[in-house]
Structure formats: structure tokens, C-alpha cells
Simulated assay, not measured.
Amino acid sequence: MQIIYWSLVVVMIFGIVGAVVPALPGSSLILIAIVIWGVVQKSFAAISTPLIVTGVVLLLSIGVDFLAGYIGAKKAGASNWGQIGAFVGLIVGFLGLLPALPVGGPLLGMLLGPLLGAIIGEYLYCKNFQTAIKAGIGIVVGTVVGNLIQGLLAIAAVAVFIYTTYPQVFN
């Protein structure tokens, strides 16, 4: 039973990483691991608190993901074109650098793609390079702050799981 428990904790740690790194599963992976633990235990009563906390974290993560980029964009004066450019840049950066740089390429693409995409999108809208750069940086900073908040929320969900289930497994 302990092997299954620690295996699921490792899956949850990958979920924490996924909460911080875009395009990887985060809080949903943690939630799935908790549900698997409930199935293994044949009782969801023992995991009701972590299940509720993780469900709330998942909903908050979705909200933070949306709001952080939006607030960062608005603070920097970005238009919808900059936000669309950042999204397209994320996809192109992830997929475009995947074959070119198999080690670190997708991660580098996920960092640089939104910045360049936001700058290009904003420049197409306002035709001012300084404004475009400011908007691109604002969108990326907002997104990074949002990802860090999501990571903290994911850590809290895993901590609640371990705190509530550890005594069941190791007593």
C-alpha cells in the first residue's frame, strides 16, 4: 500500500510542476491521483477533505490562469491583439521548437513564444514598437505570476492530501 501511496505522491509532484509550466497538466493531475487513492482505499470518506481542497484549487487555478494574463496585459496597455498573439506564440513556440531543440526546446518555446507573439500581435494593432514591447512584457509577467500562484495552490493541495492521508497509511 505504501508503494502505491508514494507513487501517487510522485504523480502529484509532477502535477505541481505542471501547475507552473504551461501546457502540462497541473491541478487536474493532482485531482486524478487523489481519486485513484480513493479507489485503492475503497473509501472516499478518508479523502473528502483533500478532494474538496483540490477541486477548489483546480477552479482557482483556472481563474488565476485567465485573470493573471488579462491583468498583466491591461496594466501594460495591451489590446486583444496582443493577448491573441501571446496565445498563438505559446502554441507556435511549443510546437515549433519541439523538433529543433529536443532538449529544452518546448520549454524555451513556451517562454519566448508568448513574448514574441504578444509583441507581434500588439505591433500589428498599434504600429508602435515601444508599446508592443511593453504590452508583450506585461502579458508574460502576468502569466508568470499566475503560474507561480498556481504552483503555490498545487503545493497546498498536495500538502493537505499528505497531511490527511499519511496517518492512515503509516499507522
Rank of each mutant, 00 (worst) to 15 (best):
F44G: 07
L29V: 01
L29G: 00
F94G: 14
Q83K: 12
L29W: 04
Q130M: 11
I119G: 08
F87R: 02
K127N: 14
V92K: 04
G77R: 06
G113Q: 02
F129T: 11
T49L: 14
L51R: 01
A45P: 02
V35L: 14
S27L: 08
V103P: 03
W37H: 10
A19K: 00
S61P: 00
Q41G: 14
L112C: 07
L67A: 14
S79R: 03
G63E: 07
A76P: 01
F66V: 04
G38E: 09
A19I: 01
L115K: 07
S61M: 00
A19Y: 05
L24I: 02
P106E: 08
G18M: 01
V57S: 04
V57A: 11
K127L: 13
A23C: 05
G69W: 04
L24C: 02
N80V: 10
S79E: 08
P114F: 06
V88R: 07
I47T: 06
A68E: 11
K127W: 15
V35Y: 15
L115E: 11
L67I: 06
I62D: 12
P114S: 10
V20M: 12
L59Q: 08
P50Y: 12
P114L: 09
K134I: 09
L97S: 06
L116F: 15
T131Y: 15
L58M: 14
G96S: 02
F87M: 11
S79Q: 06
F129W: 15
L59N: 07
Y123I: 04
V39H: 10
A76N: 03
L116T: 10
P106Q: 10
A46Q: 11
A78P: 07
I30S: 03
A118M: 08
S28Q: 13
G63T: 03
G18E: 00
D65R: 09
L51K: 01
L60G: 02
I32M: 13
L116G: 14
G26C: 00
A23M: 06
L112I: 12
S43H: 09
S48V: 07
I62V: 08
A86V: 01
L95M: 14
L112V: 10
V21P: 01
N128G: 05
G63N: 04
I119C: 09
W81I: 04
P99K: 03
A33W: 04
